[in-house]
Design a protein around this nucleic acid. Structure first.
Lengths: 120, 120
DNA sequence: TTGACACATGCCTATATGGGAATATGATAT
DNA sequence: ATATCATATTCCCATATAGGCATGTGTCAA
């Protein structure tokens, strides 16, 4: 009764963990594209692209529109918002913008710990 | 010779696809913690926490320090930067901040398409 | 109708889990 | 030395892929 890794269709986090799917989204960011264009630009087999698109569709990251025999895929970035919101908080851990503030806070913390009441 | 999903230790994208690991990072964001504190706060089995910590360590998202019989884990957010950088670009697809600009661009595009040279 | 084109789906395999249970490792206290 | 506490590792299982290949489905042209 073991559990495996969560499905790629569980949420955007799992969906975009796959590099190929991020590439697809990057390509769609410039505008609608039919599957074949994605196949050409990615240089991978068509069924594979279709499968990745299915995953992206199931988490709502892309939408489709029928146009003749082609299917035009378009980006829908909204499901990425939870990722952005979550990761944004951690920006302070690498950005130089926060370095000064962090060092000040660290100093305050040290001062507090070392403060034994004496005024020296 | 089939390929499976990339290892969770491949990069931060795969590592944080697991909700439990995001929880761990969230807890460590407040400061160093020993494994047992994480076990208590997460309410999951200790071996499971240790395994998640291993994954996080392998992608560099946490560091460890030995303190007696405890192992103090600390956050290192830097590996999250690629995620932030990638997802940041898509903010325009959901944020209201960009809605006006986008609608202007859409109008321009339509105008261009519909422009047949007549001035009506 | 027949054929070509654009996609989607089904089947198969090797791989990588997340979690449970038991056990191993390491440090501290007695 | 021994018991105990704190973590890590190992073995196991069911599940979920990503990719390759073959095939099904739907649309348009001749």
């Amino acid at each position: 009764m073991g559990m495996a890794r969560a499905a790629t269709t569980t949420d955007a986090f799992n969906a975009v963990a796959e590099p190929r799917r991020r590439q697809i989204l990057d390509l769609l960011a410039a505008g609608e594209l039919p599957v074949n264009d994605l196949v050409t630009r990615l240089g991978v087999a068509q069924p594979l692209v279709s499968k990745h698109l299915r995953v992206l569709r199931e988490v709502g990251l892309v939408g489709v529109r029928d146009e003749g025999r082609q299917r035009m895929y378009r980006l829908n970035g909204e499901p990425l918002k939870p990722i952005y919101d979550w990761v944004k908080v951690y920006e302070r851990s690498w950005s130089a913008r926060f370095e000064r503030l962090d060092s000040v806070l660290a100093d305050l913390r040290e001062q507090e710990l070392g403060d034994d009441g004496s005024d020296n």
